[in-house]
Design a protein around this nucleic acid. Structure first.
Lengths: 207, 207
DNA sequence: TTGACATATGACACCTTGTCACATATAATG
DNA sequence: CATTATATGTGACAAGGTGTCATATGTCAA
C-alpha cells in the first residue's frame, strides 16, 4: 500500500506517477520494469518515489488491486442481473474483460499483467488483507448466488465452484494474450470448458 | 537451452552448476535469484556461465523442462495403468506430486517454482518447441485416452478436457504451497472440483 | 518568531548483469 | 612434430539498477 503521503498528494500528481508506472509496466514485464524509468518519465526525484511506495512491488499491486476492486463490483452487478447464475456471469464477464483489456490503449499493459500473473500475486492480494475482509467479500457474493441452481447449496462448496469458474475464465483470457493463432479458437474452448462444468465430463451421470 | 559447450561438460560439472542453481532458486524466487550467487556457489567464473546459458531465464527453464519431461512420462505411465481414465490419472498424480515436492529436500525449490509459475512460463515452454513436437506429445496422450468414457470422443475436445483437469490439479497443488491453514483442506477441495468436472455443476442434466 | 512536523531531494554505496579482449586448451592437418 | 584452426576458460569493466540518508524546504500551530 502507498503511504499516507502519496494518498494526500493532489490527484493529478498521483495520476501522473501511476500513469508513468502503467506505461512502464506496459513496455516491460514486472521483472524488467525499472523504477528508474518510471521516475524519469514521471519527473519525480528518486527519494520521493520511496516516500510514496516501499518498492516496485508495492506500486504494482496497488495498481492491480484497483482493477481487482472494479472487477468485484462488475461481478456483483452481473450476479444481480443474471439472477444468481454465476456461470452465466463469467460468460458475460469474459467478453467484457476481453473487450476492455484488448482495447489498443490497454492491451500492452494487460498482456503483461495477465502473462506475468502468478500464484504469488494471488497470494499477496488474497492473504494480505485481514481474513475478515475476505469473508465479507465472499458473503457479499454468496447472498447473490441462487443456490437452487446447483447440485450443492453448501456455502463453502459454492464458493469453491465459483472460484473454479473464475479460474477457467481467467485462463481463457490469458490464452487470448498468448498468441494470435491460439486466440482465434479460444472463445470456443472457453464455452466448451464451461459446458463441462455445467454438465460433467463423464458419459453416465452417476449421482 | 544450454549451449553444446555445457552439454559437453562432464556430467559432474553440469550437476555442480545445476545444483548451485537449484539452491539459489530454492532460497529466492526467480526474480530475486542472482546469477552472481549461483556462480559464486558453483565456483565457476562469470564468463563461463554466459558460455553455457544465455541468461538466468535460460538456466531456469532448462531445469523446469527436465521436471516437465519426467511428469510427461508419469502421465503416460498412469494413463496405461488406469485404462485411459485421465481424471483418475490426475487424482493419483496429485498425491504423487505433493509427496515428491513437499519432501524436505525439495520443498523450498518447488514452493518457489509453483508460486512463481506464470502463464509466460507456460508460453515459453509451450510455444518454443516446434508445433510438430507439441502435436506429437498430444498424440502420444490421445492414443492412451479411452474415448468411450467421456461425453465427447472428439480429439480436440478431449485434449482440452485433459488440459482442464491438469489445470485444476496444478492449482490445487499450488494452493498447498500457499500457506498451511489453507493446505489442510486443499485435498478435499481438489476432490470436490474433480467431482464437478465428472458430473457437472447444474442440478438438471440437460444434454 | 520559533519550534515541531511532514515532505522533498539527489548524491552515494552497493549490487547486478552481460560483454569482450585475451589466455589457454584440444583437435586436426600437412 | 609444428602449425593452424577451433573450442573453451577467464575476470576486469561499463552500464545500469536499487534503497538510503543527510540535508533542505515547506507548513502550521502556539
Amino acid at each position: 500500500m502507498p503511504s499516507k503521503t502519496f494518498l494526500n498528494l493532489p490527484l493529478e500528481k498521483q495520476a501522473n506517477l501511476l500513469n508513468a508506472a502503467k506505461r512502464e509496466f506496459a513496455k516491460n514485464s514486472f521483472n524488467m520494469a525499472s523504477i528508474n524509468q518510471i521516475i524519469r518519465d514521471a519527473e519525480i526525484p528518486r527519494g520521493s518515489f520511496y516516500m510514496y511506495f516501499v518498492d516496485k512491488e508495492d506500486l504494482y499491486y496497488y495498481i492491480l488491486n484497483k482493477y481487482r476492486m472494479t472487477l468485484f463490483e462488475r461481478v456483483k452487478y452481473h450476479l444481480k442481473e443474471q439472477k444468481g447464475d454465476f456461470i452465466k456471469v463469467w460468460e458475460i464477464l469474459y467478453d467484457e474483460i476481453i473487450n476492455y483489456c484488448t482495447a489498443s490503449e490497454n492491451v500492452d499493459l494487460f498482456k503483461n499483467i495477465f502473462l506475468n500473473m502468478h500464484y504469488a500475486t494471488e497470494k499477496k492480494m488474497l492473504l494480505k488483507p485481514p481474513i475478515e475482509e475476505i469473508t465479507r467479500g465472499q458473503n457479499e457474493l454468496l447472498i447473490l448466488i441462487s443456490k437452487d441452481l446447483y447440485q450443492s447449496s453448501n456455502d463453502s462448496e459454492l464458493m469453491d465452484a465459483f472460484g473454479l469458474v473464475m479460474m477457467i475464465t481467467t485462463t481463457s483470457i490469458v490464452y487470448t494474450f498468448m498468441n494470435k493463432e491460439i486466440a482465434i479458437g479460444e472463445r470456443t474452448t472457453f464455452k466448451r470448458r464451461l459446458n463441462i462444468i455445467k454438465y460433467g465430463l463423464y458419459k453416465e451421470s452417476e449421482n
